[in-house]
Design a protein around this nucleic acid. Structure first.
Lengths: 248, 248
DNA sequence: CCAAAAGTGTTTTGCATACACCCATGA
DNA sequence: TCATGGGTGTATGCAAAACACTTTTGG
């Protein structure tokens, strides 16, 4: 920080009202073909009784990424968070975003494959996987409505250009399930035939699991199983059907 | 912040070593057809004598965006920063990124049209527009090499999907100049004919300025002038020539 | 006249869409 | 046997790439 040297005269590190640094998590999953987000219910004022994104303080020896992974493990009860997709979204720093004190929050978006039992080991308040964007929850606390909308935007464009859709799936999945991820996030139907071609034509997106087939639960031909491939970027992108794209 | 309520026992807001919150700016421009970045030279330890990104503290009543705009104005000497492209990149929060104390930095990428005289009104140390990625500067201080690389990545993919390339141009520009922006940022040549068609086919990207023509300085037919249009997103994207895209 | 850049036209080719069709399973 | 979802094949249309060609300036 060059500006570091431009401190106000007489500056010392306890002179200012301190900034608290927190992380907020927008954790998504797919259940019953619908996109859901993990929300907690606030017990205290302000915004008591309203829903909010899970999150917490960044501890003195943690990076924001480490803190986010820790909170994710605590809130979801997942013991092994490695391999899950956890991505920094942006930082929200409006001076008035928390009425109590100055809080700068680094927001993250996370994708988990299957809703494991919620509130595994944490001290979290009541947390639930609620359907995204259906009015199943009222306005969120603080600026969390905005954060959640930004996170959904990011996920939506993320699965367009990267292989991150597999992060919603269990270790082995069918192409129908993968297609379900896109349809749930985008809220639009895709042509199964073209989707299949597109995915298989992208090297490293998915790898076939030989000799295995899964009954999708209902009728229909059993589908072949795939697992996530080594690729991370998607070229060319898998474009949304009718909608227009999003700015950076 | 729900985790806000999960404070350690006995927490009060002065109990922790405070976090300092700063902004770092990667300010790009095009000069002589080459991409340049604004760098200051550090006077004090640590990293004395090395180059660094301009930046500074977020003041108690500022958001990170406000602080970034203020710093940009101070460092570039531009009095009117409105209209310039200033975009939050991400936040760097490694506990050891600054040896002196705990500093969390929100990084921004900025695009300015023409290199105005540098160090206009600020108290900045020596600052120069140096060619990006040519070894014109050694390793940067702190983690600024990484920040700068991330910023270049963001700009490179940003001009692919958005109209932000016009932010590098003066109010009125020729299509050749706009093409020069893409070639400088991507480091690759583009077909003038196809570039022209692509830009003009995108509604709202540029608007013609009637009755005006600019001599490009050298020989050749005078080019028509255009100004930035109202569009912000680019659909379909203007893809890089040979390279592959970038992950989110 | 020549070089260089603007601007127009044309051909080719790849790719996405749309849709028809067969396969395998549960009810 | 019928409905349902997996999987394959194929025609059509659009848009990007490649390149030839004209125009208008400075040297």
């Amino acid at each position: 920080m060059p500006g570091y040297d431009k401190r106000p005269p007489g500056y010392d590190k306890y002179a200012f009202e301190p900034f608290a640094v927190t992380v907020d998590l927008a954790v998504f999953t797919i259940r019953d073909g619908a996109l859901r987000v993990l929300l907690v219910e606030r017990g205290q004022s302000p915004y008591a009784g309203q829903r909010a994104l899970p999150g917490g303080f960044v501890l003195p020896d943690e990076s924001a990424e480490t803190a986010a992974a820790r909170e994710l493990a605590e809130e979801t009860g997942l013991s092994d968070v490695t391999g899950l997709h956890l991505e920094q979204l942006r930082t929200y720093s409006d001076p008035d975003r928390d009425p109590r004190m100055r809080v700068v929050s680094v927001a993250f978006a996370a994708l988990v494959p299957d809703p494991p039992e919620v509130r595994g080991g944490g001290d979290a308040a009541r947390a639930d996987w609620l359907p995204y964007g259906t009015g199943a929850y009222g306005p969120l606390a603080f600026d969390h409505d905005r954060i959640l909308a930004d996170a959904h935007d990011r996920i939506g464009s993320g699965i367009e250009n990267t292989c991150l859709a597999t992060a919603f799936c269990p270790p082995e999945f069918t192409l129908g399930e993968l297609r379900g991820v896109y349809e749930a996030v985008w809220g639009a139907g895709l042509d199964p035939a073209n989707f299949r071609r597109k995915v298989l034509a992208t090297p490293g997106f998915v790898k076939p699991v030989h000799g295995a087939a899964r009954l999708t639960g209902g009728r229909g031909k059993p589908a072949a199983l795939y697992k996530a491939g080594p690729a991370t970027a998607l070229h060319p992108p898998l474009l949304r059907p009718t909608a227009e794209g999003r700015p950076s």
